[in-house]
């Protein structure tokens, strides 16, 4: 009697397995990803809700990621956030400063090529209105020295993000290859107002003028070797 529930679930999984092999991207997202990632916009978000999150939201993925990066990363996921997500659940007191509790950071599920492509297609179709400001990034030439000074010194982005040569802080996403992972308009929109895209996120709104937003976005894109034609 006691084993009946797990056995029933096991049978359910067996029955599901052959279906999944040919399932579309949206089905894979629902069955394998929705336990950790939000796939539709939550009705409301509070600071307390951030503490129940297991992973970054994906409901605006089509406005966020570059498809090539998605297809490759889903097959071979690497660490993006040095302290995992959310960082505050994975830090512990250390002798000199707080440290990352590596035992809490589990490897990400990876997908076979065909599934990765199907999921990337489904994710790229998720483009809700009003999250990202379309056309905000103008492109143009980038002064890498000024960009680096702004990122490291004038604006202190480096406090939370790894930038050039992988140097920087641990509580934000690594930005060393942000231009490969993220769309330019997403980068610029996020820098302009992180709270508009991800309410209550622990990146501050840094009252930036358009020149700084353009410069930092161009800098991050060029830093990843992703020059805009």
């Amino acid at each position: 009697m006691r084993t009946s529930l797990p056995m029933f679930m096991g049978l359910g999984l067996l029955a599901l397995a052959p279906m999944q092999a040919q399932a579309g991207g949206a089905d894979i997202l629902k069955s394998q990803c929705s336990a950790c990632h939000a796939l539709s916009k939550p009705a409301s978000v509070t600071i307390d809700d951030l503490w129940t999150r297991k992973a970054p939201d994906l409901w605006y993925a089509g406005d966020k990621f570059n498809k090539d990066w998605l297809v490759a990363w889903l097959q071979n996921p690497t660490r993006i956030r040095p302290a995992g997500y959310p960082y505050f659940k994975n830090v512990i007191k250390g002798p000199k400063h707080d440290e990352i509790d590596e035992s809490k950071l589990k490897p990400h599920v990876h997908l076979a090529k065909a599934d990765a492509e199907a999921v990337a297609d489904a994710l790229m179709a998720m483009k809700p209105d009003g999250v990202v400001q379309k056309g905000i990034y103008k492109g143009g030439s980038v002064n890498m020295r000024m960009g680096a000074m702004t990122f490291d010194k004038f604006r202190g982005c480096i406090a939370c993000h790894k930038g050039a040569d992988g140097k920087g802080g641990f509580s934000g996403a690594e930005l060393t290859d942000a231009g490969k992972r993220l769309q330019p308009d997403y980068i610029a929109s996020f820098i302009k107002d992180p709270q508009k895209i991800d309410p209550h996120i622990w990146m501050p709104t840094l009252a930036m003028n358009d020149r700084s937003i353009q410069m930092l976005t161009g800098y991050l894109i060029k830093l990843s070797g992703q020059e805009k034609k």
């Binding site: 600071i47 307390d48 951030l50 503490w51 302290a83 960082y87 505050f88 830090v91 512990i92 007191k93 250390g94 000199k96 400063h97 707080d98 440290e99 990352i100 480096i158 406090a159 939370c160 140097k167 920087g168 802080g169 641990f170 509580s171 209550h200 622990w202 501050p204």
Partner: peptide, 24 residues
């Protein structure tokens, strides 16, 4: 919890300026 979400990243769990970002 507000402190634990936003300030701990730099000011630290001990609240004495030793957050996980200190080395940066």
């Amino acid at each position: 919890r507000v402190y634990g979400t936003y300030c701990v990243q730099c000011h630290g769990l001990k609240r004495n300026g030793t957050g996980v970002n200190l080395p940066a």
